[in-house]
Structure formats: C-alpha cells, structure tokens
Amino acid sequence: MTAAATSTETPPVLLQLNDVSKQFAARVGLRKAAVSAVDGVSLTLRRGDTLGVVGESGCGKSTLARLVVGLVQCDSGDVVFDGRTYRAGRRRTRRDLRDMQMVFQDPHSALNPRATIGEAIAFPLRTQGVSRAETEARVDEVLARVGLHGNYRSHYPHQLSGGQRQRVNIARALALKPKLVVLDESVSALDKSVQAQILDLLLELQVEYGLSYLFISHDLNVVEYMSDRVAVMYLGHVVEECSAEELYRAPLHPYSQVLLESIPKLDPRERGGPSALTDGEMPSPLDPPSGCRFRTRCPFAMDVCATTRPPLVETRPGHLVACHLHPVPESATAGDPIPGEQ
C-alpha cells in the first residue's frame, strides 16, 4: 500500500504544518532560558497517507505530535487540518478533536489504571456526547476490530499484556472514527514480535477506515515499513523529507546517512566502518549551534554552516533537504518549499 498513495491521482492534503515553532521555558540556575523544541517545521500529510517522522530522542518529534493534535499550543506558524486553520495559540474545540486522535508511547501509562478497558474506550465517546447505546456498540466494534475478546471490557489495564494494552489504546483512538491518527512511538515499548503484530494491525486499520497516520518513531526500520513519506528531524529542524523508499536508497543529508548507517546489518559485507559522526552527543537544545544545527557533528562541516541556516529545498522532485552540500538547483524556484504543491 505504500506504493498506492503515489499513484497517478494525488489525494487531497489533510494536514499541513506551516513554519510551526514551539519553545519551552526552562531554568538554568537562576537564569531563564528557552528550549527550542520545534523550530520552523513545515510538513504535509495527504489523506490516506502515512508521514513518518524519525530522529533521535530529544529532536522534537513528540512535541511535534502534540502540536498537531493541540495538546501543546504552537508559538508561531499554523496548522491546517482538514480545511480548518489553527493559528498559533488557537485551541481545538471539542468537535475538532473527533477527527484527530493519538496513540501514545507507553502502554503502561496511557491507560487510566482505575478504569476498565470498556470505560477507557467509552470515555472519549461519552465526552463527545455519543449516546449510551451507540457507545456500547462502538466499544464492541473497535475492541473486536483490534483483536480483543469482548470479555476484556471488564478487565483493568494491569491485567493485560503490553501488546494488549497497545491494542486498547488503538481502539480508544479509533472509537471516535478520526481522520488522522498521530502515532507517537506507539510500538517502541513493545517486544519485537508484538511490534510486528501491532504494525500489521495498524496497516489493516488504515485501509479499512481510510486513516491518515503521522507516524513518529526513532526506529528507522519501523518507519520505513509504515510510511509513504519520511521527514528526518534533528534538534527541532526537519533536515530531509522525501519518500520512504528514496530515503533508504539515497539519503542526501549527512545526518540521514549517519542514521541509516547506524541500523544494525545482518550481512557483514554490508557493515561499514566506524560511524562518520565526529561527536556522539547531541548538543543541548538549550544552546543549539548557530547556522546548521548538525554542523557540530557533521563530518562535512564548512564555514558557511556556522553562519547560515540551510533552507529546506527541493533538490530533486519530491525530495527536500536542508544542507549546504546540496544547494538549490538552478531550475527550482525558492518560494515553494512544499513538495507536490502545484
């Protein structure tokens, strides 16, 4: 299905982020400081597609997820979802939230330990004013759909395994029949075998309910398996965005290349030498490097990298990268950073 989305007819845009930024206030000793979690990010997600976001922990992926659904309000930029525009600071109404749901990372903490599975799934429905009978029917439906026996309705979360709990989380997100589901590291806490089951379940559900996914993970293999397009994030910036297939075949940004190299290979002939990273530690987001944020770890860092932030530009059709090694090709126009935008 990854190929289906890029077929002849381009589906309409469901979610668009325009230059969104979010800073968190922090304190260093007595001084006040700001952590720039997400800085000037622009992304597009088409209906029925999966947009993967990948990056190390601390790169702003989770903040991005929360910005999209409105759990965190952005400082600047706007989020356009299904034709509605949410400028900085505008809250989602209760009605808006029906169309966007989220599946959280930690199956242990994402379910209220004092609520039964049935209550947990029914909660968003009841909040949205769905009638009792309808709620009952929908809880049964989604439970069955995620592969859990109806008797689990009366169970408490601690009586379930991690994989079962994550199924419940998915069921809760599906109960409102959303258009967009944000998956924030939703399989990271699970065993590999259970991960695979959940991923397949997610792919099935996507087709069946016509869902669009914003799939966030630090695991490149998982992102490749799930996504149509992938955005690579580093310290709050998107450094590269292209189709999943192209990213894995020919990554352009040095950071993407390093990330791909770091995937453990089964075949020893494929294993490269030691990592090209010059410094293993990600710089503190409290005091990010000037210019290109990756330059402190980049093996190809140049003088210009310290002074100018490289813009995210389309160097090949559908392939955007923010790196001074890949300047804007002559043919491209500077004012059109969104891929596929006619």
Binding site: A110, P124, T127, Q128
Partner: peptide, 25 residues
Amino acid sequence: QEYMEAARLSGAGSLRLLRTQVLPN
C-alpha cells in the same frame, strides 16, 4: 501520565478530568 493527555484529547473539561481521571487515582 499519558492517560491524562489521552483524556484531554477527547475534549473533556477540567472538572470532568479531575473527577474521572485524577480523583480515582
């Protein structure tokens, strides 16, 4: 906890969150 975020994401107001998510816990 993430279940608080999940509950907020369903559009529940403060009092409802306090009653259903916080108090029992």
